[in-house]
Simulated scan of single mutants.
Amino acid sequence: MGEKVAAKMIGHRLKTKQTTRDGIKVTQLYVAETIQYEDEWYLALTLDRESYTPVIVISKKGGVNIETTAKENPDDLHSFKFSLTRGITHELISEVSARLEPSPMEVKSLGNILIRLYNLFVSKDATLLEINSLARSSNGTFTCLDARFTFDSAAEKRQKELFALRDAESEIEEELEAEKHGLIYIKMDGNIGNVVNGAGLAMATNDAISDHGGASANFLDAGGQATKETMQKAFEIIMRDERVRTILVNVYGGAATALGPLRVPLVVRLQGTNSAEGLKLIEEAALGLHVESDFGKAAEKVVELARASCS
Rank of each mutant, 00 (worst) to 15 (best):
F82W: 00
M231S: 14
K8S: 09
S59M: 12
K157Q: 12
S79V: 04
T89V: 06
A154P: 03
P54F: 08
A226D: 11
E161N: 10
S83L: 01
A98P: 05
F235E: 12
E292D: 06
S293K: 09
E161C: 04
D146I: 05
T143L: 08
K60M: 12
E95S: 13
Q271Y: 08
D152I: 04
V55L: 11
A135S: 12
T273D: 13
L129G: 10
E106I: 01
L120F: 08
N139P: 08
L129S: 07
M1C: 07
G190K: 01
A234D: 07
G224V: 02
V244Y: 09
E284C: 10
T46M: 15
S170M: 09
T227I: 07
L279D: 00
G278Q: 14
S170D: 09
L220D: 07
L134G: 04
E156W: 02
S275G: 05
Q28K: 09
T69N: 06
R136Q: 13
E304F: 01
E229I: 06
A155P: 05
T85I: 15
G253T: 11
V264K: 02
G223V: 03
M9P: 01
A286T: 07
A306P: 04
L145M: 11
G200F: 02
V26G: 03
V291N: 13
K71T: 12
A222F: 04
E300L: 07
S83D: 13
A286G: 09
H290C: 06
K108G: 04
D152F: 05
V268R: 06
S97E: 14
E174V: 12
W41M: 11
K71G: 07
E106S: 05
K4C: 07
L165E: 14
S94I: 02
P104T: 03
S97D: 12
N218I: 02
T205I: 06
K25C: 08
S51C: 12
N191R: 00
G182R: 00
F149G: 03
D294A: 11
L145Y: 02
E33F: 00
T69P: 07
I238S: 07
K228N: 15
V26Y: 00
V302I: 01
G2F: 08
S123H: 09
F163Q: 03
A199V: 01
S97R: 04
T143Y: 03
E106Y: 01
M105A: 15
P261A: 05
K4M: 10
L29K: 02
